[in-house]
Write a protein that binds this DNA or RNA. Structure first.
Lengths: 190, 190, 190, 190
DNA sequence: GTTTAACCGAGACGGTACGTCGAGTCTTCAA
DNA sequence: TTGAAGACTCGACGTACCGTCTCGGTTAAAC
């Protein structure tokens, strides 16, 4: 039992919650993050404005809740036979997520908002969306290597920068990226 | 002479232009990008609101004009003796720019805005701020290698992702990053 | 017995009823009619919101029930020896009621609400609070004269207008008002 | 010249001012004072909400400005030959104003609002709408008699109370009211 | 003594007006 | 023509209260 506070009171409407989350998803692709407003979300969800504010403080919070779960799912790739295939497959999934997925658009919007909003920065720090999936892939590639933030960073960084700076995702050679990454992973020449 | 239109007329006030650009710089660090308003800029610059709109359409345009020149300057590093030192020095400059410089904050804000504003996306596409400096460094490291967008991307990407995702710049090991990058640059093993 | 519907069921709580009526009385003098809300009344009375709505539709109804009985009581003056004293005493009571009594404030608020709310207009028409007391006084002054709405009106009107238009009740000369009223009551000169 | 403040700046739009005042007039009769909202006024007037708030703080202020001038005009009656006719004519005008005129509805709404809003009380104290016209009539009836607030009160009060308490204006015998008033005006019997 | 149902409290629900603020436009004055 | 000033329409902000609803508990009358 989690819901303990108080005794009486009407319980939270799961229907309203879902309506809001879906409204955010829809509106993000339709009008973009800048034009995403609490008012608009409430109206689209067919929900009172107060109801939205009761459960979320900002549009960033709603977006976070709406797209984080989707994100992890989209980034979970099936194991491959070789490390190169493994990394390439992951990078393809990453590029697809960042460039084409609705959840990816939400993630990019959140990263963007975090640049000038400390609250969003804290929010996205609570869940390392990209890092978790990358970490899983790296563990499969080299089970002996310890968890390494910076290796994850070298894996994700180039694709992330490519997409964020607005370049065509189709022009990114993930195979070449994967090869370079794996070579960079090799131990120092003795 | 560009200003030819009409016959007479008061010429554009360079003083007002500088006041606006400096106001944007100051306000960005003081209140952040989100709280940056055209009204606020005009008032801080001691300039009429219309005067701002006459020369720039959005706050992004002003910011672009205000910080791009500074950016290139801050990222121009002196040549080093070894490739590893060259790359490490550049990465340190890059991290310093992105994480601590006013111009870097402006650049991050622009990248952020570009995620949901096609106009800003076009705007920042007109000048490859980071790419230009990185390209110069790469040319010094290996003059024979042709210009390679993706190499630039692998050089900048990890640091960019590290900073953009809000992690502590001091915890980033640029030396290790430089080594991995150079190893990734080596030709395929025969 | 009125409560017949259904078969069993818990009877209405008189305690809750009194708590609401007293809460309205208190809140009226504390925050004024405009700031009087159903929610505030319920909270002040320590009663559920639904409980209030179950028995009264509007704050006007509660106020009516809360202050009408008090009103009649406050306006019932003891008989005097002369008509002039009778009328003057009554007018003093009337001014005191309208200007200084909590019930009077409630009455004024109801009259005010009636100006733009037909429901309140009907409500206050069900009980002629001022008229009843004035009628009693007039009967004592001249038992032969038949009931006369307009005489009551001439008796109450001036004091009513004085208070309602916001003038200082202390500056109203009720003695002079009484004399004028009695002279106006005299039969036409032959 | 009144408009001196500052030097530049776009001047106030008289068109917007008139649109607001007319919108208030219209809405008052259409939806009543309670349902009169700043938002509704702005929309009806085809004017920005900010523009309304720039010039008036409350709906009461707008209403005051919108109907006071009309009020004085409607209450200015032509001189009659006898005092009785003079008073009767005035009372008829007064009843017509209070009961049937749009401006009168506005006046009643303001008086009502003043009962629970000190700001409105101060507002309506700045201009004695009814008193001014009544005073003019009384001067014509008896030029020697000095200005007498209480006489004005006895003249207006009964009609005011009759209308405010919601009784049928057609059932009010203004002729009888006028006779009683004039009798009450006579000097004390020696 | 068990139903049985209306009671009470709490609080979330969909609405809507509030007054403020920033947007971008327009219109004046003075230099 | 340029600048500064400031009013214009528009619309989102977050808050408050509206009246309704839906819960968990309680309590007194009817069987």
């Amino acid at each position: 039992m989690i819901q303990v506070k108080g005794r009486g009171g009407r319980p939270r409407s799961e229907q309203a919650r879902d309506a809001v989350l879906h409204a955010v998803d829809d509106l993000l692709v339709e009008v973009g993050y800048a034009a995403l407003t609490m008012k608009g979300i409430a109206e689209r969800a067919g929900v009172g404005r107060q109801t939205v504010y009761r459960w979320w403080s900002t549009k960033a919070e709603i977006l976070f809740e709406a797209c984080v779960d989707d994100a992890e799912e989209e980034l979970a790739v099936a194991p491959s036979r070789t490390p190169l295939a493994e990394i390439t497959t992951y990078l393809d999934a990453l590029v697809g997520f960042l460039a084409h997925s609705a959840a990816g658009a939400g993630y990019r919007a959140l990263i963007a908002a975090a640049q000038h909003d400390p609250a969003v920065k804290e929010l996205i720090a609570t869940k390392d969306v990209l890092g978790a999936s990358a970490s899983a892939v790296l563990r499969r590639v080299d089970p002996d290597r310890p968890a390494d933030d910076q290796a994850i960073d070298r894996l994700i960084g180039p694709a992330f920068f490519w997409i964020m700076s607005g370049r065509d995702p189709a022009r990114l050679d993930t195979h070449e990226l994967a090869r370079s990454f794996l070579r960079g992973l090799e131990p120092e020449e003795s």
